[in-house]
Simulated assay, not measured.
Amino acid sequence: MAKIATILTNLYEDSEFTDPAQAFEKEGHEVITIEKEAGKEVKGKKGGTVTIDKSISDVKPDDFDALFIPGGFSPDTLRADDRFVKFTKAFMDAKKPVFAICHGPQLLITAKSLKDRDVTGYVSIHVDLENAGANLHDKEVVVCQNQLVTSRTPNDLPAFIRESNKLLK
């Protein structure tokens, strides 16, 4: 089963973390949360909390099979730290599965990993995705090159989870 790196910090969109994480674990995958500090409790926009498993300083992309980037304000905060940007870029460069929903693609933009890629994301980042050279599709889920799964909002979670789990098989 897959070991999934999940990069997350305060103000993540609760359901965009919890629903996929629970679905991945139900399929037997291991979801490891990563932030600046292991053991730290981060809070979601709707009041949920997650205790972080690992510090970004203590992990390597080679330790994981896939990367999961929930939305909310978390990706925008994390992309200000070059360690998270390099971590994200390593998954894209290695062609490992990457799952990004809502504002999650902001990390992919900063990692300069979206040129000529088919993607979607929250409406407020559509122009940013296009400026990054991505091929934008306003659809509930977009799968690109059997590696990258993106979705727009919590309403798209069923399709996002379905397509992400397909790539993990």
Rank of each mutant, 00 (worst) to 15 (best):
M1Y: 12
M1P: 15
A2C: 14
I4S: 01
A5D: 00
L8E: 04
N10Q: 14
E13S: 10
S15I: 09
F17L: 08
F17E: 02
D19S: 14
D19M: 14
F24D: 01
F24T: 01
F24A: 03
E25I: 03
K26G: 09
E27D: 15
G28M: 13
E30P: 00
T33E: 06
K40S: 11
K40W: 06
K43E: 14
K45E: 13
T51I: 13
T51W: 04
K54Q: 12
S55P: 01
D63T: 02
F64V: 07
D65S: 09
A66K: 01
F68A: 07
P70R: 01
P70M: 04
G71E: 10
F73W: 07
R79H: 13
A80E: 15
A80R: 14
F84R: 03
T88Q: 05
K96V: 04
P97G: 13
P97F: 09
V98I: 15
V98R: 08
I101T: 07
H103K: 06
A111M: 14
A111N: 11
K115L: 15
R117V: 13
V119T: 11
Y122R: 01
V123I: 12
V123P: 12
H126T: 10
V127M: 14
D128G: 13
A132W: 04
L136E: 08
H137L: 11
D138Y: 11
E140N: 11
E140A: 11
E140F: 02
V141T: 03
Q147E: 13
V149Q: 03
R152G: 06
R152F: 06
P154M: 03
L157K: 07
L157S: 11
P158L: 10
E163A: 08
S164N: 09
K166I: 13
